[in-house]
Each structure stands twice: as structure tokens, then as C-alpha cells.
Design a protein around this nucleic acid. Sequence first.
DNA 1: CACGAGACCTGTTCGC
DNA 2: TGCGAACAGGTCTCGT
Length: 284
Amino acid sequence: MPELPEVETIVRALRHPTHWPFQAGGDLALQPGVIGRQISTANVLWDKTVAFPSAEAFKQQIHGLQITGVSRRGKFLQIHLNAMTFLVHLRMSGDLRVEPDVEPLKLHDRLAITFTDGSRLVFNDTRKFGRVWLVQDPQSVTGALGPDPFDEDLTPGMFAGMLSSSRRRIKPLLLDQTFIAGVGNIYSDEALFKAGIHPMTPANRIDEDGSVRLLAAIRSVLNEGIERNGASIDWVYRGGTFQNQFNVYQRAGQPCPRCSTPIQRMLVGQRGTHFCPHCQVMNL
DNA sequence: CACGAGACCTGTTCGC
DNA sequence: TGCGAACAGGTCTCGT
């Protein structure tokens, strides 16, 4: 499910969940997000969800800690606690919600963290790919990630240099989180369309002009995704509307919004890839 | 180094 | 209607 915009949407909601239900005597409108809440217990319903440490150590160590902040690094959600960091990766089908602790748990709930104020944070993940970590140093989990697309240090010149030093095809390269952190299958297809670059173009064959267009396109589609609260496809993701703005993703056979040529779907690096064969040509 | 295949999982949709 | 194949927003590991 989630790429950078979906994770960012959740991060912002965790800071200001004003529309979420709250509990007994509690005053929802005055709740400043989950920041400040203190953890009483953690209930691990699917052991493998906890990547580090063991499920037992996780429950023991997280007890009593307080949330001091929420942030994002690539597709990782970071919940800062006094003394430690709780990281969540939603992978394909993960989702987080906050609710009163008296609610019955739902199908596919994998982890529930209860707060002393009677609320709780629940991790739901149909496909069980999602993982959480509880560590001293978040860098031990996110250390290998490439730059965030919105990092100011990521200049067009630096991005051009990154592209020129790889012979890999651009689409799998954009999905490589050690190259750039946060871009997934939807936004890579949309960005390549916007930049007019064929998904199989070797990165080092993208010229200066193309690299400038591509970086701008990545930022543009991610920003638009965030503005629309992410993309909701199938049953996943409440609230997001970016799926209504797709130009190519999951639009195989439909006319290109720019030239009306039918959008094509192909496999690139085992991932479904959508592009316009007329607007996105390899100029080698 | 770059790539494909297979694994990890459950659910939905599509074709016969 | 039923049933298997293909597919899904991600990432890891292995073999070539």
C-alpha cells in the first residue's frame, strides 16, 4: 500500500488525529495527537511483526515509555519515545489507527499498543509483510536509505551525478530505497510519465535536462499525493484521493492524457509498469 | 554489478 | 458456480 505520501499522511494524522474517536470522558477535540501519550502495554498478535528485538523483549522494553514525536524517513514511520525509537514499515498492506482501547480488535490486527489514557495505537496488516522495530538508534534501521526526495541537499546537480553513476534501468533504480527513499511503484510510474522518460532507460543515459525534469517530477507527484492524502486503491487507505489523478498507473489500454495513445503495461524488474509508448521513448 | 526468480502472506479479480 | 491463475502500494535472499 503505502509509499511516501501515504506514510506522510499517517504521520500528520498521528500528530493531529482530531477526527479520530476517543474515549470515556475524553475530549477528542483537545487531544494533541498521540504525542505525549504514555504506553502501558503492548499486545503482539503476530510475533513476526516485531523485527527487533524479540516480541517478548519488545513488550517489556516499550512499557512505560512516552511518545515525544512522530516523523518519517523514506517509507519508515518513526515514533520517538523518551529513550528509544519505535519504527513502523507498512510494506504492502499495513495500516495504523488510533481508537479507544475498549473497541474489539479487528481481523488482521497484528499489534496493539495501549496508552495510559485509555486509547491505543493498532497496527493492522492483512499480508503480514509489515514490520516494527524498537531501537536505541533509528539509524540502525534506516541507515542504508538514500536521500529523502525532499531533502534540500538533494540538488539537481547531485541527482544528475547519482543517475550518471548507475547503468541500471531507471524504474528499478527509483524503487531502490538505497538510491532514493520513499518512491514506490505508483509514484515511479507517474514521475517517469511526467518527465517523459521510458522506464527501461539506463540511468546513465538520461541527459542533464532529463535528470532535472525527473527530480522535479518526483517531487511534484509526491507533493500532489500528500496534498490528496495519498492514494486509496481497493480496500486500503481511507480518505486518500490521489488515485483519481493517475495518468498511467493501472490505466493500461486507456488513452494517454497527453497524446491519447493507449497506455501500455509491461513488467520491469518483476513489477507492473505503466507508461505511454509515445510520450516516453528511449532516446539512445 | 545488474538482473531474474523465489520467498514472505492474504485477498480479490479474471479467464475458462 | 467453481477453480486455478494472475495480480496487488514492498523488500529480502539467492543464483547467474
